[in-house]
Write a protein that binds this DNA or RNA. Structure first.
Lengths: 343, 343
DNA sequence: CTGAAAGCGCTTACAG
DNA sequence: CTGAAAGCGCTTACAG
């Protein structure tokens, strides 16, 4: 029996019904584990189901039931390990319910994101989790929701009229500044890069707020390149206008890059210069000296987003929810007291 | 107009047909961009399509056409950045055709993988790309294919009767050994971990073959733990039986971990000890000294796998194909000549 | 080039 | 607790 034969001779509910001497509706109930069917009938039907090698046709069920048991996930990049962990969190809670995840990568391009949103709608996903590009307007995404398609924003918030699962970035910056200040640092730089979305602005504002609160100069914000090798060579930018003794980084990618560049320039991190990362991806533990980093626990954020979406699908009309999870500072070895500095 | 109204009053082909004074079939042809329809009719229909806000219902189309325009992708973990890059490659070529990727994570568990395979079949995916767990038997996966569901194996090969996109691991090990030998190293360890699948065996055999060819001891194979912090503390294992002057690593995760551990033990990498990684993920460039690594280009492998699947879907009966891509050695700073060693 | 009819495999009321 | 009928929105032959 060739593959094609199998394809064509697909076993349907009706086939099972005939073999088991019941109606198609009864088989459907058994398949969906309804309690409305007697033990005896259920046992008989289940045996036939198995004998005939019945495979549930989710597509057909979706058409009739008007739900597809799929959720769409749009991420801005797959190259950053951070999003792998986020996906892992989403997949674990969505997968538990038996639903499937449809994944797409916008590459931080708004036009591509629009295409993907459209495509997901055509695929009939029951809801969408998206980390939206910086250009995305509130109207754009609220409209999707107005179509009756549940949307939850993850990591980047475009509107407060829709669900959002994110991270308390401002609190994280506060923790970083507090820690460095407690070590005696007063000139602290903030190294950033990438598109200007809510998560970017929150970090900037968090940094400025925390610095101002302590009467420190909040303006030492330095934009560095995106690519890893270029970040390392951007170290001189830190010292262009002032002479900071410490730098907080927008993410661990920047921290690792700067750590490399500082090393190249002969500085000993944690001794001559202090560095705090953000996100606490697994590499923070692997580098030497170990990188002190503000943990944003992407897996947890992914799980939060998935739970929000599931709840939204169940109750389309409840008020928008936001889950903003706390960060915590993972202290390792990349910071030292300012007094010890030899610069 | 509330979200529910939208849902219920979905615009169908029939609605469009009535407004445009044509038949439903004609609208269907326009939507699918068939050349069988006149310019005038097409223009008229397209206008109505747009006016009414028609959304293609992929689910309904799938049911009738017996293809879903989705492909399933099963990865063993999402925590390793390597798989993010692989996914990125798959997504880019699958996305180009307008198909959607259904993603699932087996967590290296065979039982979970079976569940996912079953679920993907129920979702009616047109094909599957999978990096299979070590326990997977040839029969298991050949059976999926016998059901008429195209499968391509990626990175790990269970059977040669099905398509496979992978990496020339043995060639990569050869490159690493050749390079270290050219620097004068004769005692070379191989640090490995993880489940024993084809990619694992190929690397082991590649290492042993390359060592034997040069008359070197092929048995210095050391198993290290999975978790990053534990790898660093596994450095003493390298020196338990012999005193290697260099180590090749199964992947960059191990290389980075051992680099950290060697640093902790006071050794200077590239001077006191040489280290070669495998995969060349972005961190290889960021660490100091920069890590010399055998590049396996996961994005390319992902693209290869996706192309194989697309071809297989188009021609179910052609002979199985394998695309084994070459590695190349990215030389950086983590290796030095053995003469310079002070041990 | 266009239309009328049938059917993909399921679930949903509605009867009994 | 079980069955007969209708229909989800599309595509596929088949006529014209």
């Amino acid at each position: 029996m060739s593959a094609d034969d199998h394809r064509k001779s697909r076993v349907t509910l009706l086939d099972v019904a005939r073999h088991a001497n019941v109606s198609r509706a009864t088989v459907s109930l058994v398949v969906r584990k309804s309690p409305l069917v007697s033990e005896a009938t259920r046992a008989k039907v289940e045996r036939v189901l198995h004998e005939l090698g019945y495979i549930y046709n989710m597509g057909a069920a979706s058409l009739r039931a008007e739900r597809s048991n799929t959720v769409g996930v749009i991420v801005p990049t797959l190259g950053n390990p951070f999003y792998g962990e986020l996906l892992s969190g989403i997949d674990s809670v969505v997968g538990e319910t038996g639903m499937a995840v449809i994944l797409a990568n916008s590459g931080e391009q708004f036009s591509r994101q629009s295409l993907l949103l459209q495509r997901m709608r055509e695929h009939g996903v029951d809801g969408i989790i998206a980390s939206l590009t910086a250009e995305t307007q509130a109207e754009c995404i609220e409209q999707i929701s107005d179509w009756g398609l549940p949307v939850v924003q993850v990591l980047r918030q475009v509107t407060d009229r829709l669900d959002y699962a994110g991270v308390d970035y401002a609190g994280g910056m506060q923790q970083a500044v507090d820690y460095l200040a407690s070590l005696g640092h007063r000139e602290i730089a903030f190294a950033v890069h990438g598109p200007v979305h809510s998560a970017y602005r929150e970090r900037i504002e968090g940094f400025r707020g925390a610095m101002l609160e302590r009467g420190l100069d909040p303006d030492l914000i330095v934009r560095v390149p995106m690519a890893m090798p270029d970040i390392a060579s951007a170290v001189p930018l830190l010292f262009e206008r002032k002479t900071p003794t410490a730098t907080i980084c927008f993410n661990d990618v920047i921290a690792l890059g700067l750590a490399a560049g500082l090393y190249d320039s002969g500085r000993v991190i944690g001794q001559d210069f202090s560095l705090v990362g953000f996100d606490d991806v697994s590499d923070a533990e692997a580098t030497r000296p170990r990188l002190t980093s503000v943990s944003s626990r992407p897996t947890t954020v992914g799980q939060n987003a998935a739970r929000l979406l599931l709840q939204r699908i169940a109750k389309p009309h409840r008020a928008p929810q936001q889950i903003v999870s706390k960060t915590y500072l993972k202290i390792r070895q990349s910071c030292g007291p300012v007094d010890a500095f030899t610069i």
